[in-house]
Design a protein around this nucleic acid. Structure first.
Lengths: 139, 139
DNA sequence: CGGTTTCCTTGACAAGCTGAAACATCAAGC
DNA sequence: GCTTGATGTTTCAGCTTGTCAAGGAAACCG
């Protein structure tokens, strides 16, 4: 009943599993430094480029909008985000990073890349190859 | 205050973020097919090679042992795992996959690889390169 | 205007996770 | 042997994430 699986693919999938687990740990750890959970950090990072309706956040994170309500609540409680009513459509609430939130988001991004740097114990050329391969995988 | 960050590394980190998010979605979806959550599926996969003390599971998953208690409880409730007392040390409980649990674990692994296959829209050679690069990243 | 749709929030509930406390068992020293 | 301390698991309270169903407000449309 077992499907034949080419061993190379199996190996790559396994490696991805390991790398993914590691990415998560480091992401959560980096977030914790700023007293954030992983989900809160993800939302804050999403808000960095500019305000976003709650619904858009949910779409990006592939979860229910009701879930975002609580996360933004907690960001707001820490003074990192705020809600504004969209003047163009008073139904929608725009979540926006505060000044402090923007700073935190930037620091978070830096520490993330920094944390992931040793993981990329690869040469410039190898990183380039990796980028190309990964880019092909995300259409 | 911003640390200088070479753009290539930043790009790779971003790509990893995307791939990681995708991996998770697919993993959870594959688990859901078998009426499992992501965490339950991970534990079951860990149990596939053989029984494991609760503590070891926690170490592998990098979480508290008390967390594993609940997860194994739910696997046990579904008849996919069982607890045995280690005869060598009666303090430790060995979690083991049942017959049905083993079958489920195997199916899960297959569907995972299958699900991740389109993601690997890469040639044999490219997959080989990817494997080598990833392998260098996980010491 | 009235009906429908869209956006957000609320409430109830399950699961994952942590930390502290409790309990049983082992292991070492006296 | 007995005591003391360390270890493995569980239980409990508490928080965050996530879902789903229901509700209110605002926009849209006929």
């Amino acid at each position: 009943m077992t499907r034949r699986m080419d061993p190379l693919t199996a190996e790559v999938v396994d490696l991805f599993g390991t790398v993914v687990a590691r990415y998560h740990q480091e992401y959560d750890a980096a977030a914790a430094v700023h007293h954030l959970t992983g989900a809160q950090a993800r939302v804050l990072a999403l808000l960095a480029p500019g305000p976003l309706p709650m619904r858009r956040i949910a779409e990006r994170l592939k979860c229910e909008p009701s879930n975002i309500t609580g996360i933004v609540d907690r960001l707001e409680a820490q003074g990192l985000a705020e809600r504004r009513t969209d003047p163009a459509d008073r139904r929608v609430k725009l979540a926006a990073a505060t000044e402090e939130g923007s700073v935190t988001a930037e620091r978070l991004r830096d520490s993330l890349e920094f944390a992931r740097e040793p993981l990329a114990a690869l040469s410039e050329e190898e990183r380039g190859m990796l980028r190309d391969l990964l880019a092909r995988m995300v259409p």
